[in-house]
Nucleic acid binder design. Structure first.
Length: 507
DNA sequence: AAAGTGCCCAACCGCCGCTGG
DNA sequence: CCCAGCGGCGGTTGGGCACTT
């Protein structure tokens, strides 16, 4: 029995202020019972808690709007439900997350993204809000530190799980299961293949063991065209308006042909030959490939993982719009031509394994030999290292083909600044720049597209091409998020650089 | 000691899907 | 089929606290 004084106290509190009906509609609904009560919002008091607990003990959970009606509690149903679920439930586990719980959260996030409720279901006594707060805190912390979110083992585990799932789902069947967004965009994404990855030793060695990667691999795979996960993970929860908005942000497909648009970004171009030698990245996306080939080679373009670093999944497209900069086609338009060597799919393994024997240049840094993972890690570091050069490089972002109007450029640069934190390239949870990009990239239009990547020689040539100067940008994550072939390395003076060569795929 | 800064987390907000009338 | 009510979910906010300067 709730002490009447408690109720009075509660009513007193209500009368004191803070009574600003948060849900006017519900408040008015309450009024249908005859009593129009202003609903309080803000922190709950012990008295209110007591009222709610007693009510739930007596009537059980559910029918939350009835709580106010029957108990006199001046809280809307939603507030009551939230309070009960997050704080008053008897089975709640208080205190910090255990190591096991943290591990589970990370693993689950790598697999399912920001599905807090699902995570909470796997963590008895924990609430979605708690997990969400934990994750956001963790993300911010690691973002600040310039660290990736996911430990590599989790990445690979999730990756493998997803790969298995995809295989089971006839990944390469060519069926288009998610048309909602994709059909609108009608372009496809090439895969990115990392090869001869070179990383800074310090970048890796200075890293905590658990901080090597901010990539939810499975989510990467999520974005692979035709993957049953594909658009689902990004859009299934997105309302139609958002989807429309997202797709509407895409650049007009009519602007591109399947073979054009191979923009090149370069950062710290330095000596082109060095770049070419030290780091070769190519693309291979062949829809006819068996799943075991496809999986790895297609990871990057769509992966939430790559992704995972930068933007929340709820913002899948805004950056994509900005990063899907079409008109580098005027500069390099022949990468998709038959002349371009189709990269070996075997190099996917190279990517993952980063065999030392294939490393060129001075440093092989991945203690875990994780290839792509290290690449991502390195990128995080590189971006951080390059912060000092930010203004310089930002200033050289150019619009050589005139494809980007002032407005867009302003937006682009604004967002650039907004995410200028060096850690931002991998710091965010649930989504990222890649997420946004790949959101749009998930293709539904068959998979006839083959994106061919430049050879090392081509890269060297490209890097040396003076036109590169026009399209330098500093955001390697942008590059990656834009179907880029990305290169990291170190120039002659020991200065970090990364070069990305991007392809816009088929429109 | 005071002011400034950053972090944490409880709570709010808006949206979505389900259900019943 | 439409609409309203409701519960649920994920993103965001802001107050309070701890720490730093």
């Amino acid at each position: 029995m709730v002490d009447r004084d408690m109720i009075n106290e509660n009513e007193d509190m209500i009368s004191k202020g803070g009574v600003d009906s948060p849900y006017d509609d519900e408040a008015s609904h309450e009024g249908s019972t005859g009593a129009s009560i202003l609903l309080k919002k803000g922190p709950w008091t012990p008295a209110e808690d007591a009222i709610l607990v007693e009510y739930v003990n007596k009537h059980g959970e559910g029918n939350w709007n009835a709580v106010q009606k029957h108990s006199g509690l001046a809280r809307c149903g939603k507030s009551c439900r939230l309070r009960w679920a997050n704080h008053l439930r008897p089975d709640l586990k208080k205190g910090a997350f255990t190591v096991e719980e943290e591990r589970l959260i990370i693993e689950m996030h790598a697999k399912i993204g920001n599905k807090w409720a699902q995570m909470a279901a796997e963590l008895p006594g924990r609430t979605d809000n708690e997990i969400k707060n934990y994750w956001n805190t963790r993300i911010k912390r690691r973002q600040r530190a310039g660290l990736p979110v996911y430990p590599p083992d989790i990445c690979f585990q999730a990756l493998n799980d997803k790969q298995h799932d995809d295989e089971m789902c006839s990944f390469a069947s060519g069926n288009i299961q998610h048309h909602d967004l994709i059909s609108v965009n009608n372009f496809e994404i090439p895969a990115i293949e990392f090869k001869h990855l070179e990383l800074y030793p310090p970048a890796i060695h200075d890293m905590p063991a658990d901080s090597l990667l901010d990539i939810p691999p499975s989510i990467m795979i999520d974005q692979i065209p035709n993957s049953s996960y594909g658009s689902k993970s990004l859009f299934s929860s997105m309302n139609p308006a958002k989807r429309l908005r997202a797709s509407g942000l895409l650049l007009p497909r009519s602007s591109f042909s399947s073979n054009d648009a191979v923009p090149i970004y370069s950062q710290y171009p330095g000596d082109g030959s060095e770049i070419g030698q030290s780091f070769s990245v190519s693309s291979a996306y062949d829809h006819n490939l068996p799943p075991d080939h496809i999986t790895s080679s297609q990871l990057l373009p769509g992966s939430h993982a790559f992704i995972n670093g930068n933007f929340p999944p709820s913002e899948p497209s805004s950056w994509a719009m900005k990063s899907e900069l079409p008109s580098f086609q005027n500069h390099i338009s022949n990468w998709g031509s038959p002349a371009s060597p189709l990269p070996s799919l075997d190099s996917v393994d190279t990517l993952i394994q980063s065999p030392l024997t294939e490393q060129t240049g001075s440093s092989i840094l991945s203690p875990r030999n994780s290839g792509l993972l290290d690449a991502v890690l390195y990128e995080s570091k590189a971006i951080k290292n390059s912060k000092d050069n930010h203004s310089h490089r930002a200033g050289i972002f150019a619009n050589p083909g005139g494809w980007m109007d002032d407005t867009l450029q302003d937006v682009h640069e604004t967002e650039w600044e907004a995410h200028g934190d060096p850690a931002s390239s991998f710091g965010h949870s649930g989504g990222s720049m890649f997420n946004r990009y790949t959101t749009n990239s998930v293709s539904s239009s068959g998979c006839e597209f083959k994106q061919e990547a430049p050879s090392v020689d081509q890269l060297q040539s490209i890097v040396k091409d003076e036109r590169l100067d026009e399209i330098l940008i500093s955001r390697s994550d942008v590059l990656l998020g834009s179907n880029c072939y990305s290169h990291w390395g170190e120039n002659n003076s020991g200065e970090s650089f990364d070069t990305a060569i991007c392809s816009w795929g088929t429109w």
